[in-house]
Amino acid sequence: MIARSTPVLEVKDLRVYYWTSRGPVRAVDGISFTVNRKERFGLVGESGCGKSTTAMALLRLIKPPGSIEGGQITLNGLDIIQLGKEEMREIRWSRISLIPQGAMNSLNPVMRIRDQIADVITTHEGVLPKKELEARVKELLNMVELPGKVADMYPHELSGGMKQRVCIAMATALDPQLIIADEPTSALDVVVQRAVMQTLMGVQERLESSLIFIGHDMGLAAQVVGRLGVMYAGKLVEVGNVRQVYKASLHPYTQLLISSLPSPRDKRKKKEIPGLPPTLLDPPPGCRFHPRCPQVMDHCRHQEPELREVQSGHLVACHLYDER
């Protein structure tokens, strides 16, 4: 592992609950991780594991009935949870930005692309001379490999991949330190997906910012991130670099998940993960994976495992790796 510099983002014991008439749904229940400068960090897991909720919490975009119930989010020394509404609005886009899920549908259908990108710039930097603004928009479009004429177009005139590039341009317009991409290519065809992802990675490298990639596609994550965390039922169960997680996974859930993935290189029958993920209204006691775990032990049923570093940079929350 390289010398640990001060991370760009530090998340400690983050909890996000959704309050329902039947009690709190513990969507994110005490997760901690860090993201380093220039790093691409992945948060992966299946639907309902809390990965998108985590993304929203980092931007303080959790809406009622959801609320951040505890923990710390520090972005370059700035405590995000303590910020006032107005301060938060200021750093959104300029220091931390989001490419949301289905981003292409988040564009305003009756506004030209130029005006939508310009909006992001002027709300944060105030009114700029028209020429300068125009140059900035063109430069941004150029950076995401779109021709300048796109500025004059409306969203419906663009393909899905092009709209997604516009969203990348908007998310990077103010040179943020951290970009969060939540399933940025989930509705795109594989070829376009690859082209858009490569553009996003190129932009992120040029800006020297960090990227959090959130997704359920383990194949895509393997191509994109350097380090990643695997989430299950609101918890981080394993964190490590991409080779550690894919090639030498420690947590039984990660192992099963990896071995269940269809691959264009391997035709062998894939293993199934028995059972279903738990409801987060009433998660099982102890380790949340224990009802489905093939290696379950007695104390897994009542004692919750903590996320611990068991090898350099490789963390796992599983009693199999307890020291005795």
Partner: peptide, 29 residues
């Protein structure tokens, strides 16, 4: 060939080969 080589393989050692550029006309139907 383009399709098969664009599949993201769930293996960090099998990466996408090369950079893929699509012109905007390519993405438009």
């Amino acid at each position: 060939q383009l399709l098969v080589s664009s599949i993201p393989v769930p293996d960090p050692d099998v990466g996408w080969e090369g950079d893929l550029k699509l012109s905007s006309e390519d993405e438009m139907r």
